[in-house]
Structure formats: structure tokens, C-alpha cells
């Protein structure tokens, strides 16, 4: 059951990441790209957790936690960059 479900789920997440990458390249604006990058990060967490289940290891948990934190901080920093670039704001 699990041996069948895991590749399917990993495939779905991989496809989702491919779509994020397409949006990241496509744009058209800066906020679109930041949103795509953030979603790519969140999907990475799902992929890392799925690999952790597949390989039966708990080490992957730390990687997922770090990706979650760095992704959030990075997105906030990029948003702040756009916001402070605007002089009127």
C-alpha cells in the first residue's frame, strides 16, 4: 500500500515544483516570482518529509525544519526589500 502511494505522492509534489519553477521563470512581476519561490520552498518540505518516510530515517526532519525557517525568513526579507524600495510608502 505504502510502496504504491509513496511514488505517486512524490510524483505529484515533483510536478507541483515543476509548475512553481515555470511561474518563477515566467514572472511577470517581482511579487509573482517571490510567491513562486516561497511555494517552491514549501513543496520542498513536503518532498523532504516524503523521502524521510520512504527511507525510514528521522534525520530528514531537521532538514525540513531548516528549509521551513529559511524559506519564511527569505520571503519576508524579499518583501521588505520591495516595500522599502518604495519611497512614498
Amino acid at each position: 500500500m505504502l510502496t504504491l502511494a509513496l511514488p505517486v505522492a512524490i510524483g505529484m509534489v515533483a510536478l507541483a515544483m515543476a509548475l512553481n519553477l515555470w511561474r518563477l521563470v515566467q514572472g511577470p512581476d517581482l511579487p509573482d516570482r517571490i510567491l513562486a519561490l516561497d511555494t517552491l520552498g514549501i513543496n520542498t518540505i513536503a518532498l523532504v518529509m516524503l523521502l524521510g518516510i520512504a527511507l525510514g530515517s528521522v534525520v530528514y526532519f531537521e532538514a525540513a525544519l531548516i528549509v521551513a525557517m529559511m524559506g519564511f525568513v527569505g520571503t519576508v526579507a524579499l518583501c521588505k526589500f520591495i516595500l522599502s524600495g518604495d519611497i512614498i510608502e
Binding site: L2, V8, I10, G11, M12, N20, R23
Partner: peptide
């Protein structure tokens, strides 16, 4: 576990489809 990862993968894909 199988059900949860399938539902999770489907929703992750769905959000990205919406994004694209």
C-alpha cells in the same frame, strides 16, 4: 499514512496548479 500522503500530495499539486 498512505491516505494522508496522497491527500497531501494532491493538495500541494493543487496549490501549484492555481499558482500557474
Amino acid at each position: 499514512v498512505s491516505l494522508l500522503i496522497l491527500v497531501g500530495g494532491a493538495f500541494a499539486l493543487l496549490g501549484s496548479v492555481g499558482l500557474a
